[in-house]
């Protein structure tokens, strides 16, 4: 009975129009946009899809969704349950709301330890809000298990995990014994839409809620390693230059020269 744990973070909707994106520089926080609900981080939903594909082939697989955040994160857990995951756990502890990647990974690793035994932990390659891309591998480090990153396909059979990885110039196949951590990329494909039947089942499922002390952790001892110095929206300057010329050929030649000068071609 394979057990897969998928880590799911909730993020501001990345499709929020740029014109509505605001940060509070003093508080160093992104201001939530009214009327636009946060969503599960896309790579994490793809991770749930990867787990479900394993479950499609091995139906006795159990998929647990694990999330660290405030009560509102329940929405992303419920969405994952509606997609077909079996159980949901929310670690909700106000002392952990400001956790950096290091504290996050420690808390998630402790929760994974509590959920053991497990065969596979799946994370997104990065969360689409901060794009740090380190929680998955840090969890593997803390749990002292192998980590395979940026997967486009995960297969699991008889205690062996086979992963097709995305490289800059192609693909590579990596293998690891379970348990291990795999991070997934969008090349894995679109996550499925929940069927109404599964949404109904998800509505009835309890989400377990744990605090740091339920995990045997002392929140006061968990210290961020990264401190945020400044948060701001960069100013983007656009300068326009019209290339003139008598004929299209002349314009093209001038444009090509300009681009070469700028070392763009």
């Amino acid at each position: 009975m394979p057990h897969i744990i998928c880590c799911v973070k909730q993020v501001p909707d990345p499709e929020t129009p740029a014109s509505q994106f605001r940060v509070d520089e003093a508080a160093k926080k992104v201001v939530p946009v009214p009327g636009i609900a946060p969503v599960p981080s896309q790579f994490d939903t793809i991770g749930v899809e990867a787990a479900l594909r394993i479950k499609d082939k091995t139906p006795d697989t159990t998929i647990t969704i694990l999330s660290l955040g405030p009560e509102s994160y329940r929405d992303s857990i419920k969405h994952s349950l509606a997609m077909g995951a079996d159980e949901g756990v929310l670690i909700n502890d106000p002392a952990l709301y400001e956790a950096d990647h290091w504290v996050t990974a420690q808390v998630l690793a402790a929760a994974i330890g509590k959920l053991a035994p497990f065969d596979l932990v799946i994370c997104g390659r990065q969360a689409v809000d901060w794009d740090m891309g380190v929680v998955g591998s840090t969890i593997a480090e803390i749990l002292n298990v192998p980590c395979i990153t940026i997967a486009k396909e995960i297969q699991y059979k008889d205690g062996q995990v086979v992963v097709e990885r995305v490289l800059l110039d192609g693909f590579e196949t990596a293998e690891s014994p379970a348990p291990c951590v795999v991070t997934v990329s969008n090349e894995l494909g679109e996550p499925r839409y929940p069927q109404l039947r599964q949404i109904m089942a998800a509505a009835r499922k309890e989400v377990k809620v744990w605090t740091a002390s339920d995990l045997g952790l002392d929140a006061a001892q968990l210290k961020n390693l990264v401190s945020l110095e400044r948060l701001y929206v960069p100013e983007v300057k656009v300068e326009t230059e019209i290339i003139d010329g008598e004929t299209p050929q002349e314009k093209a030649e001038k444009l090509a020269l300009k681009l070469r000068e700028a070392k763009l071609i």
Binding site: I36, H79, Y193, I199
Partner: peptide, 27 residues
């Protein structure tokens, strides 16, 4: 974000509405 409304929805209805909305927005 679902339309703000006085209509009382059960948890099941809320989840269904938000998932159908997701489908409508994306597809």
């Amino acid at each position: 974000m679902p339309t703000p409304t006085l209509a009382a929805l059960t948890e099941e209805q809320q989840l269904i509405v938000s998932e159908v909305r997701r489908f409508v927005e994306k597809e």
